[in-house]
Design a protein around this nucleic acid. Structure first.
Lengths: 201, 201
DNA sequence: TGTACATCAGTGAACGCGCGTTCACTGATGTAC
DNA sequence: TGTACATCAGTGAACGCGCGTTCACTGATGTAC
């Protein structure tokens, strides 16, 4: 064959990386394919040799980036025991570093609302990304029962997503820092005190 | 004068109402001015007799709709005492009704991530909307001190926003209902048990 | 070892379309006589 | 009361632009002789 056997796969990887970064930074509807291809060092015409449509690119980029993020979190969370993995996630997620770098951050906080309005592959994948995190967080939640773990994971992830979005809407840096700190404290306390004992039918 | 004195103000109101609905349903970037004007019963050419730019329309629609929502919540919350206003907000916000009607719902959950990326009047207004809710919720939070009220308001609002977004990304209705229920329970317990006593320095 | 070839990843012009914005105009209306 | 007029809210064609997608092509490459 005229090109190295992994050449096309490598190019595809470059496109996916450029897409994942650009879409998170400026929204899926806010970034054109020409821009993504340009950032991958290519011209826009070659796009359809790699993906069937923009929708498919968004879905593939979401999956690639989320699988890597979930795997990395799993490693970090396992290392830090006996601190609960969920408490670790809260610290990393609700940090000024994450707030300032949407392009390398959580896909739900940046693209959740936009993609939930759609109906194609990207819509399905953002749902899968959310479910992957809920499952992962439930596995690392401090509560005793399966149902209580799931409740802690869902409540905490919801507050992380909303807290990050709130912090990003605030223009005053002090207000934004205050929001992140308040949600962190709120969540650590809620996980310490509640949800272990009773079942809600 | 050739038209009734409030005629133009009424038309402006129709445009604002159509805009607020369309932008929340399909995103600010996902709706054209021609569509907004059409839904207001007008042609697109007349737009600039009412607003200087699309950015200004978005900002004005965000403000109109949020002022009304905050005022309405304040009434409902005051009626329902001694149940805390924050607990009332949680029930209404994290409902299937709200999940299924983004076009008449919270502007932060639908447009927060998108507009936080911008830099014009719309960006400034979405920040103002968020601050208005945080202040309002803090006023209705059950904790004793000002700082603890603010912490409860911020944590709860963050979880409401993220919970609603998570519920909207889920395609399975049962999973979506489960998410809403779990965040509601998580928040009611957190507000019952935590945050009243100690100060975090 | 050197050359001719077939492959196919990548190029760049072109498509129809909808966008935000501008502008010359039209025609329904309240006022003045 | 009836008519002529001035106003200005609203119309609709036009602008330049960027979008997603298509397609005829080009030229760098590994293989065969």
């Amino acid at each position: 064959m005229p090109w190295k056997s992994d050449h096309k796969a490598q190019t595809r990887g470059k496109i996916l990386a450029a897409a994942a970064e650009a879409f998170r930074a400026r929204g899926a509807g806010g970034v054109g394919l020409a821009e993504v291809m340009g950032e991958a060092g290519l011209t826009h015409g070659g796009f359809y040799a790699h993906f069937k449509s923009k929708d498919e690119l968004i879905a593939a980029a979401l999956k690639t980036v989320n699988d890597a993020r979930v795997a990395r979190f799993n490693e970090v969370a396992s290392e830090r025991a006996p601190v609960s993995g969920l408490d670790t996630a809260i610290e990393v997620y609700l940090s000024s570093r994450h707030r300032e770098h949407p392009e390398s951050g959580c896909t739900i906080a940046t693209l959740g609302s936009e993609l939930a309005r759609g109906s194609g592959k990207a819509r399905r994948q953002i749902g899968a990304n959310a479910r992957a995190w809920l499952d992962q967080f439930a596995r690392h939640a401090p509560a005793a029962t399966r149902a209580a773990k799931q409740r802690q994971a869902t409540g905490a992830f919801a507050a992380m997503i909303g807290g990050l979005i709130l912090a990003r809407t605030a223009e005053d840096p002090h207000e934004s820092d205050r929001i992140l700190a308040d949600v962190r404290t709120f969540l650590h306390e809620a996980l310490k005190q509640g949800g272990q004992a009773e079942e809600v039918p």
